[in-house]
Nucleic acid binder design. Structure first.
Lengths: 101, 101
DNA sequence: CGTGTAAGGAATTCTGACACG
DNA sequence: CGTGTAAGGAATTCTGACACG
């Protein structure tokens, strides 16, 4: 589920080139809990390709007037749905193999 | 044949973290024609994940005492072999479908 | 040949804040 | 709420060069 796309190696300047977003916006979306870059030893932010894609999604929604708070809700709902699906699959798997302890 | 792994988005400081090589070495290997980072508008070097892997290979060879010149030869030979294989495949493909013009 | 280092300048990134709204 | 901007400092990156070997 994780890969090279999740390695945090891109500095904010490059993210700026890749997304067209201002540093201000990128940092603000972090402040609002939408993106979670890692930091180098001295505090420089590092983003992954996945983060860049996420930022592009955020930019789209913002253009449609969606507030950061709502965007965050969307993400959390999406995650819940995925977790739910995973749970269902696990259940079926266990039922099939009689693994219920 | 190209992908996310070939996108030049990693600055030299991060490459340093990823490879353990000094900036000096990394720049020198470029000078010797072993790696080819791109540049941002103002000249900052940008590397890809593939470049990082390549640098790791170079580091291994250097530890074995292989000179940069020889390493370059190796790479060029490897490339020739790959090109040769591609050529053969293309030939077979064309022969099979009678595509020779 | 391969790599370290000091040098000086230019560009980057960071944080906290004021501004507008 | 979301984003721009000026502010000041700290860290990054770049090039050309001297050094050793």
């Amino acid at each position: 589920m994780s890969s090279i796309k999740d390695k945090k190696v891109i500095t904010i300047g490059i993210v700026t080139e890749l997304t067209g977003l201002s540093e201000r916006k990128i940092r603000y979306y972090e402040e609002r809990g939408l993106v979670f870059p890692e930091r180098t030893e001295r505090g420089t932010r590092k983003y992954s390709f996945s983060d860049v894609e996420l930022l592009l999604e955020i930019a789209d929604k913002r253009e449609d007037g969606v507030q950061t708070y709502e965007i965050k809700q969307d993400f959390s709902n999406k995650k819940k749905k995925e977790d739910y699906r995973d749970e269902m699959l696990r259940g079926q798997f266990n039922a099939h193999f009689n693994l219920r302890k």
